[in-house]
Computed example of a mutant assay.
Amino acid sequence: MRSRTRTFTVVAAGVVAVSLFGTAAAVAAPAIDNGWPYGHAVKAHDDKTYTLAAVGDIACEPNDSDNAANPAALKCGSPSLGGFDAEFATAKQADAMKPDAVALLGDEQYQVGKLSDFEGSFEQAWGGLKFLEKPAPGNHEFYSYTKKGDNEAGQNGNGYFAYFNGHDQSGTPNASGQAGDDTPANQGWYSYDLGNWHIVSLNVECNSAAFGNDCSTTDGGLLAQETQWLAADLKNNQQQCTIAYWHQPTFSATTASTSTVAASAPGAGGQEGQVADAWWKLLYDNHATLVLNGHEHAYAHLKPMNPAGQYDPKRGIPEFIVGTGGEALDTLAKNADGSFANSNVITGYDQGYGTMKLTLGEHSYAYSYTPALAGAGQPASALNYSDTGSGKCRG
């Protein structure tokens, strides 16, 4: 995999000089504090095309001394997981896209995202793209993991921020960096621009100590402050095209319909899905173009939807779930007749691992998803799947 480097030099207050692949440019900081410490790497409102790679749910837990007490079935090398083969395959696929940025959709590192786990697994496959990566955290970076015979304490983002933002000699994460701020007032939400596109990365892991175990979007807690920040960021956005991404999806593709909560219902994914429901309303009111999520270990492309989960071809936002980064695979929810349990799912794939490519034009986008590696036990035909198409901005 090719090595890529990016250097940053502060030249004046509010102005950053960025060197990317040997090309330098001076850019001003945005009018609103967007939580991204390096400014914008490209000029806004240009007519160039940019490539954004997107994927989540990536790296297996390394089988090392730090994890000696953990079940072997949950670690790299387990036949039930994608393992190193899968995460290296998706990283190679992303690298071949020659992306301008890589949107990481959470659960970058299993099972609880310790710094040593990031260094022993995620870094091995995805480290060559590190300074292009714009991460969002997932539940495995914040919550404890006590399933399948495991018993690991939650990291509350410590390993995640230490890996992406850097850390001191004791391993304490830097307060600001590539994953946004790591402070009591901001747990890693930020926005950035690529050409005519405004892109927002959000942290939905509210049932954690870092958020005071408070998932209300209105009570003045940290999650409510993040929601207020999102409203202000969207209000101040001058770009025509907007993408937002976070981990747990608002609308599900792998949760089977029930008599009480349908897969197409807002918040079907639980408390984090209910939070994402509030964010969907803000994005809908501000004419966002796309929402990207992970968490469900499959690929799914959903129709443009309004906040109620109803098909809305004029103002609705399409959702892409791309949880096929390499760790494991889930099964898409289907009815007895083979149709998708969520009727808004246009197409889906749960037989292998892959990264999504978004080509971002001045007023439109194209998308492409093809698998990089078939899942264990899947036939060779599993690699024949593809989903491609295009759309226009709604700003």
Results as ranks from 00 to 15, higher is better:
Arg6His: 10
Thr7His: 12
Phe8Glu: 12
Val10Phe: 05
Val10Asp: 14
Val10Ile: 14
Val11Ile: 15
Val11Asn: 08
Ala13Tyr: 12
Ala13Glu: 15
Gly14Val: 09
Val16Met: 15
Val16Pro: 00
Ala17Cys: 05
Leu20Pro: 00
Phe21Leu: 14
Thr23Pro: 00
Ala25Arg: 10
Ala25Trp: 00
Ala28Thr: 09
Pro30Gln: 08
Gly35Cys: 11
Pro37Asn: 04
Gly39Phe: 03
Val42Met: 04
Val42Lys: 01
Lys43Glu: 12
Ala44Cys: 13
Ala44Asn: 10
Ala44Tyr: 05
Ala44Ile: 05
His45Gln: 13
Asp46Lys: 02
Asp46Ala: 03
Asp47Met: 01
Asp47Cys: 01
Lys48Tyr: 00
Tyr50Trp: 13
Tyr50Ser: 07
Tyr50Lys: 09
Leu52Phe: 07
Ala53Leu: 03
Ala54Cys: 14
Val55Gln: 11
Val55Tyr: 14
Ile58Met: 12
Ala59Ile: 06
Glu61Phe: 00
Asn63Glu: 09
Asn63His: 12
Asn63Phe: 04
Asp64Lys: 02
Asp66Arg: 08
Asn67Thr: 11
Asn70Leu: 12
Ala72Arg: 14
Ala72Tyr: 01
Gly77Thr: 07
Gly77Ala: 05
Pro79Val: 06
Pro79Tyr: 03
Ser80Trp: 06
Leu81Thr: 06
Gly82Lys: 10
Gly83Cys: 01
Phe84Tyr: 11
Ala86Gln: 07
Ala86Lys: 07
Glu87Trp: 09
Phe88Arg: 11
Ala89Arg: 06
Ala89Asn: 03
Thr90Ile: 07
Ala91Ser: 15
Gln93Asn: 08
Gln93Asp: 07
Gln93Met: 13
Ala94Phe: 04
Ala96Gly: 08
Lys98Thr: 10
Lys98Val: 09
Pro99Phe: 08
Asp100Glu: 12
Ala101Gln: 04
Val102Met: 09
Val102Pro: 04
Leu104Ile: 12
Leu104Gln: 08
Leu104Glu: 12
